[in-house]
């Protein structure tokens, strides 16, 4: 098997085993209703994690995503509630603002040669601060468009509901996977993560790609902020605190190498679902503190980082000595 597929396969196996064990304990978890809730509850996290996957594959990190979710949520709520703008127009404005913010961070990372960690940390404080300057309180959104959207769903076999935002997340994952694996931009992202110097020598437009990567991540975080505002019907400046770390966790558990160059968008989907599974299990159990989610995710993260280390160090010694084999 391709060595970079191994962490992904491991994630899939662990998810399957964990789900099977949960079903064994709580047969009620085996239903499309639970699946539907999985998707709806984690839609914002999933959408953000797709952008984070690109960032991490390129060898970077984006700490600003949670703050951008909070900021766009507040922005959308303000535009709709205070200025009476139609939600769709508000969404468009929010996405453009988020995209511009991401492009600025990408440009700072490339042209000022500041590490992504620093730039996006600054971005995180900026976005969170801006959201809090606009308002300190939760702004409820009451618009008929919101109630229409939140009541829109497709019935799955078994009575589960695939909500619009759940479906949107799946769509983002599919498009994300196609972009990563089937486009020149996707190739360039992997190239940057593999070796930025080589990539530049091979003609990869490093500046444009870097800026696009952070634009993509911020735009998807903006989209996640919109989804979060639909999910909660409100905008709150302290929403989604720490989501950047959940997203990074989902990406790494999904088999993407934190040092860049290797990873799969599909793996991130499993990573998000695994987090959802742990949360659902805790709800079914009823006695466990929700903080157990963090503990389980922390444990899994550790296991996966060790696993990746083992997989990549074991196969880094050149294995295919083609000529010698033929020679003998």
């Amino acid at each position: 098997m391709n060595r970079s597929l191994r962490p992904l396969a491991a994630t899939a196996v662990i998810f399957a085993l964990a789900y099977a064990a949960s079903i064994f304990q709580f047969p009620g978890m085996f239903s499309t209703r639970v699946l539907g809730n999985f998707l709806t509850d984690n839609a914002f996290l999933g959408i953000t994690a797709v952008g984070m996957t690109f960032v991490i594959i390129s060898g970077g990190i984006d700490l600003s995503v949670g703050a951008i979710i909070g900021f766009t949520g507040v922005l959308v709520a303000v535009l709709i509630g205070w200025f009476g703008i139609h939600p769709l127009a508000a969404f468009a404005i929010a996405l453009v603002v988020a995209a511009a913010f991401g492009a600025a961070m990408g440009a700072a990372i490339h042209y000022l040669e500041v590490p992504p960690f620093i730039v996006t940390l600054a971005g995180m404080f900026l976005a969170r601060g801006a959201a809090s300057v606009i308002t300190q309180d939760s702004i409820p959104v009451t618009h008929e468009f919101y109630s229409t959207v939140t009541s829109t769903y497709w019935l799955m076999p078994g009575g589960g509901r695939l909500s619009l935002i759940g479906a949107l997340m799946i769509l983002v994952f599919i498009v994300g996977a196609l972009v990563a694996h089937r486009t020149r931009f996707g190739s360039n992202v992997y190239a940057l993560g593999g070796n930025a110097v080589s990539a530049a020598l091979m003609g990869v437009p490093v500046a444009r790609t870097t800026i696009l990567i952070y634009t993509l991540s911020a735009t998807l975080s903006g989209l996640a902020g919109i989804v979060f505002s639909l999910y909660t019907s409100a905008g709150y400046p302290l929403a989604a605190v720490g989501v950047e770390l959940d997203a990074i966790g989902a990406v790494v558990i999904g088999g993407t190498l934190l040092t860049g160059g290797y990873g799969f968008v599909a793996g991130t989907f499993i990573g998000v679902m695994l987090q959802g599974l742990v949360q659902t299990y805790i709800i079914f159990d009823g006695t466990l503190s929700s903080w157990w989610t963090k503990i389980v995710i922390g444990g899994l993260l550790f296991v996966f980082i060790v696993l990746q280390r083992l997989v990549f160090s074991a196969s880094s010694s050149r294995t295919k000595t083609f000529w010698k084999l033929k020679h003998e």
Binding site: T183, S187, N188, S198, A199, M202
Partner: peptide, 24 residues
């Protein structure tokens, strides 16, 4: 100075992959 993490084919054609409808 190539990319060890990418396929041989991609290393040969990176930067000038032929695309159709935007897909490589």
């Amino acid at each position: 100075n190539l990319l060890p993490n990418r396929s041989v084919a991609e290393n040969l054609f990176l930067g000038r992959q032929q695309t159709r409808f935007g897909f490589v």
